[in-house]
Design a protein around this nucleic acid. Structure first.
Lengths: 343, 343
DNA sequence: AACCAAAATGAGATCGATCTCATTCAGTAG
DNA sequence: CTACTGAATGAGATCGATCTCATTTTGGTT
């Protein structure tokens, strides 16, 4: 409707000159500049980014693929990315997978059709992912977030998941706990949950304790006490639980309390992520804090660097164990009257 | 690179035919169809949506403007919208305002340059918003979410905020509370907070109680006990608080507890929104539940209807008071030993 | 007044699809 | 075998900007 050509006509100049007014105003004589600007103003000219994008072969749009914005970890990362991206003149096209790996390929394909300049992804499992293989093959710039692939050539922004969970386990061990379990969502679909389990195992072994199999929940974000029990056949009464994310931890604490178990008196619980809400609650959530904003910002920064053709070299981002009321020293070391048992 | 023209050449047909293969395959003879598809496959052809969008003047992109995805209310809405949109072949371009009305105009302008087909917005204040005026003027399809403007011509998906808070206040009154306050974020910036305050006032007046001035917090999502105290100069000891959203309520409960006030024994707290997390915590959060997923879905549905030129007529969506442990019957009706006082 | 480099401007192709309208093709009837 | 009809296909304009390269202006020199 109100395209550049109309503006140019109204101002009595050519398309080219009108275009220059917006892209390289310094090349235009001041008087013509003002004439064109006036015409643009009058016609309520609004540059058409589609045309720009088509012509310049650059959209300044970043495609974002994440499991679920309802998980504060992703919401916080999303916000940080949006701010960082906007500051550099980029916008975000956002898609969610619902933790469903089978959707990843098609969703990414969709964004590639839109010609996003690059992608920020959190995939289910970075190790054997069709999507990543394809992106690699087509050399589309992309950055993983939260994923921690083995391949060092893949750019990924994350903490050292193994070490982080190792630290959390050590924390519990230092508090005197010996019967420690780990709760996670569906393992097959999460590279980071597996690494965290490794860390848990390593810490226990260092203390001569045999790690238990992971207690696998059906949901990535919702733990239930009955399911916990059913996974504990033949196990000793636990005194502490590590959760592979904060939402699991919070829902678990809630369900434990509902079933008459006190946290941390009967059982200590540690989460992973360090979402803000955890600090507001009672008991406050002890958790391994990931720097979510920094992760988001860094993801954008690294992606933009890659798009400029640089070879950014990123290390792991630092994690930190945030103490909280949900994890305390082992109580009644010689009786387990209140401990959890298999039914 | 791998444009339609290359495919057409490889298949030995014209651009037009090649294009038809993807848009109206029924018009193409089966043998040519397969030849073109084979060529496309071989060249790894990926349709360029920018070109399509430019030519057809339709992007199938919905612009989304929301305050902050870290608030679960918006995260849940966002997810619902993404799913609904994708099902109809639309994608989301997401922008955040950080509750800052002064950014709204520019952010929307940006999305209009991208030629989004329509907008879903949650603005600070729908009553006197430049953005809405502009969108109206340019007849860009848009839908408000959570906002509740006076103007009936503006499409808005929300609950009846006034009635919802009225119900919450009635709930407290029925529990015997008489000293009821309302906590909110910055009022000047929130049409819905004002309506909720109206509802609070109405309920109290019906019981012959003079409403108190709103207790205004600096943040939209974080309440503090000291700030609460400082706003209560000359007031009686409160026994119950209504919060204009769940995050305020949760942080307030946490801060109350930290300052030695028991919830609900010393003071009852009710939130607004009904975020899932509220149910997991202890005490579980009593809250006015908004149907967030339905709101998100509806927003997309209504917007698409508008884009088709229809005149969807939407009523308010239903709210419901979800009881919770954070709000209980009035304790010790004649002593206020534990009640909150101004210092 | 003539000349020249530098500064402004313009003409036209281009990005990759879609759409209209004209043209060709295949199959059938006479 | 010719004519006719509907199905398939093609030619070329178009969406709205950008970019290159050619051309015109401008302003300063001599």
């Amino acid at each position: 409707m109100t395209d550049l050509l109309s503006v140019a006509k109204k101002a009595g100049v050519s398309r080219a000159t009108a275009a220059r007014v917006f892209s390289q105003p310094e090349l235009v004589r001041k008087t013509t500049l003002q004439r064109v600007l006036a015409a643009a103003e009058e016609l309520a000219f609004r540059p058409n980014r589609l045309a720009q994008q088509l012509r310049t072969q650059a959209t300044r749009i970043i495609g974002v693929l994440l499991p679920d914005p309802r998980n504060p970890v992703f919401a916080e990362q999303l916000l940080a990315m949006e701010l960082a991206a906007r500051q550099q003149g980029y916008a975000l096209l956002v898609t969610t997978t619902g933790y469903d790996a089978s959707q990843e390929l098609q969703l990414v394909e969709e964004m590639l059709c839109q010609r996003v300049d690059g992608l920020v992804l959190t995939v289910a499992d970075a190790e054997n992912s069709e999507v990543l293989a394809k992106l690699q093959r087509e050399s589309v710039p992309y950055v993983l977030v939260y994923n921690q692939p083995t391949d060092p050539d893949v750019q990924a922004i994350s903490v050292d998941n193994r070490l982080a969970m190792y630290d959390a386990a050590q924390y519990l061990l230092a508090l005197g706990h010996r019967q420690i379990g780990m709760v996670a969502g569906p393992m097959a679909q999460s590279d980071r949950a597996r690494l965290r389990y490794d860390g848990y195992c390593a810490a226990l072994r260092e203390h001569g304790i045999t790690p238990r199999p992971v207690i696998e929940m059906a949901s990535h974000t919702r733990a239930s006490f009955p399911l916990l029990q059913s996974h504990m056949q033949g196990n000793e009464g636990l005194t502490a639980l590590l959760c592979s994310n904060d939402l699991l931890a919070l829902s678990l604490i809630s369900d434990l309390q509902r079933h008459g178990h006190a946290v941390p008196d009967d059982i200590s619980v540690i989460g992973f992520d360090g979402i803000e809400l955890g600090e507001l609650l009672f008991p406050s959530l002890c958790s391994v804090v990931q720097p979510r904003e920094a992760i988001g910002r860094e993801a954008v920064a690294v992606l933009l660097a890659m798009m400029r053709g640089e070879q950014p070299d990123i290390g792991k981002l630092p994690h930190r164990l945030r103490p909280g009321e949900s994890a305390g020293p082992l109580q009644r070391p010689d009786t387990d009257a209140h401990r959890i048992r298999t039914r």
